[in-house]
Amino acid sequence: MAWFRKEKKPKEPTEKQVAIPEGLWLKCDECKEIVYRKEVEQNLSVCPKCGYHFRVGGRDRFQMLFDDGAYKEFATNIRSGDPLEFRDTKRYRDRLKVYEQRVGRGDAVLCAEGKLDGLNVVICAMEYDFMGGSMGSVVGEKVTVAIERCIDKREPLIIVSSSGGARMQEGILSLMQMAKISAALSQLAAACLPFISVLTDPTTGGVTASFAMLGDLNIAEPKALICFAGPRVIEQTIRQTLPEGFQRAEFLVEHGMVDLITPRADMKATLARFLHQFLNK
């Protein structure tokens, strides 16, 4: 036996690209090819080489889904009040300010109303860039307001999810948003109005374990990570590395949890088809 053993290098965490960085060129996370940024943007933020779906913000979603990119946002004036006066290594209040400046004042979800293929619809689109799309009181309230609007105006609902789960900085109140939104969805279901859940990379934790899995249809973007407990947590539990493709959209279709996978380019047409059929129009 050798006296000295080579120390194993700790595994480097695989950094996921959050948004398309500034600059003329960018490297695709998936195929590692250098691609022209404009080309990616014109291609709905999908890599022209390998079809990798980059994460996109709420307003980009609205542009892709509403007719002529025309829509009206609502519930725009709801902000987090730091109910627990939470502080870890930084104050939650200060973190919020940073994200508001960097991403916008809509917290981790934007709600809008407009026409999709001629139908009046409400769309909520999550903003992963805002604190990892985490769900706190504001996300809970905005989505609930959106559901209530659907019931009021008898319009279908689409929620595009992208979230790391519940927002720890709001403690139990974040957990309660799962109950609140699910209760509102039960009313939407009783009103026989369609709700289509669009799951994009990543949809995890409390968001998956509430509204994201409750769609009349659950439609995922290709290769999106969709799970309750994240891969790292599971690896710690079972002390094994997970198989390739575990918890990806394709895996969820195979296991009966998602209805279908739809590439971004076909998403609007797919939603329109189902909604017209469900509404018998």
Partner: peptide, 9 residues
Amino acid sequence: FRKMGHYEK
């Protein structure tokens, strides 16, 4: 449950 949460308007 509708009431739960804390935010500013």
